[in-house]
Design a binder for these strands. Structure first.
Lengths: 211, 211
DNA sequence: ACAATTGCATACATTCCGTATGTCAATAAA
DNA sequence: TTTATTGACATACGGAATGTATGCAATTGT
């Protein structure tokens, strides 16, 4: 059992630090997560942390980048599997809320992230997500499905609506029933953009599913 | 010049602490605001702070309560002055965004507040604001102006959309132009709820104004 | 095999929060 | 009027956490 190559060891410690920090940040929160504690839990010390990430904020950035990558991967997968562009759009919105219901994501990305790293609308990943949604809206407008004047602005609004919906659902006593109501409201709101709205949203009825 | 009554002095120190903290939280942020520093700036010490507010979080709650009161006051005033219920609703949304553009509000209420005090959808004030909006939506539905199944869910979505819009506008290079686009998109989105939508939103056209 | 780079640990200084204690003024009572 | 008590606020102390500076050891290149 020869020693692994050095670069691999380094990547391993980086991953260990990110994983340990992600768990600590997601449970006790960024402010109350002691660097001594969770580096020790990873079998390391703060020395490794400062060497690789500069400071605590740098580590938070790395954690958020990891989470963002996972979210992006899932969102693109959802969009790929939709029959129509409009269905893909709706499905993407629902998938977004589903992911935002994860307590770890809520705590790290939605609450501590903005407080420590500044406004999320300036983050690279958020920007990418918004742009992707804006592109969808643009295409939907081009094909005559919906009406939008400024796709980017509309994407920002929709994104905010879904984020708030996720926060709401996660902090209510009965998330199951609430999520159903939220999905229904989202569909109602988005279908208001349709040029030829179906009477009761039957267009995407077959794809409705509970969270 | 007799001494003021004791209760008045106490209220004064409380107000001084809240004001000093509000300024510190709004500029350097909650985490980097040293209690020693801003209590000294108010001519006091941490002793007064702990006596009146228990801890740093308690002071943040007091600061947010003060800001919330101001926001509520303004929102009710806007709603009172609107000619129709629908116009009042639109105006309220726009006023909400205007207020959320204030850097102090963004920093304290929208970013540090959730990180320190937990999810804002559980805050008393937020709940009141949402309920007010839900009531509006219910009345608008009753009078046949709009279609909504669950007013509360729709209010949550709209609230989130406006919050995100404010964050977006505040962190973009040209807030002027962006705010115009945001308002237009909001009107488009909300008018999608109208039972009998006017072709180009002319119904509320006269009330359009830039931020 | 040797030297140099560097991943990571250890030790230290600083800062900040929370508590415990003390003091002085104002109000209530005698 | 004098005394006693309450409470508003300051001071002092302990603990913990972050960031930096230094040190060691192991791998890589020559």
């Amino acid at each position: 059992m020869a020693h692994k190559p050095r670069s691999e060891m380094i990547a391993e410690t980086r991953a260990k630090l990110v994983t340990a920090a992600r768990h600590a940040f997601g449970t006790v929160g960024y402010a109350d997560a002691s660097m001594d504690d969770f580096t020790a839990a990873a079998g390391l010390t703060r020395g490794a942390l400062y060497h690789h990430f500069g400071d605590k904020k740098g580590l938070l950035q790395a954690v958020i980048a990891e989470i963002d990558a996972e979210m992006n991967e899932r969102l693109t997968a959802v969009a790929r599997n939709a029959p129509t562009r409009w269905d893909g759009f709706i499905d993407g919105c629902i998938a977004y809320i589903e992911m935002a219901l994860d307590p770890e994501i809520q705590r790290i990305v939605l609450r501590d992230g903005p407080a420590v790293l500044g406004d999320p609308t300036t983050w690279a990943i958020q920007a990418a997500c918004i742009r992707s949604m804006a592109d969808d809206l643009q295409h939907l407008a081009d094909e005559g499905t919906i009406t939008v004047t400024d796709p980017e602005a509309m994407a920002q609004l929709i994104n905010g609506a879904m984020l708030n919906a996720a926060l709401w659902i996660a902090n209510v006593t009965n998330p199951e029933a609430t999520s159903k109501k939220a999905v229904q409201a989202i569909k109602l709101l988005l279908e208001g953009l349709l040029v030829h709205p179906s009477r009761d949203g039957e267009r995407s009825k077959p794809k409705v599913r509970s969270l």
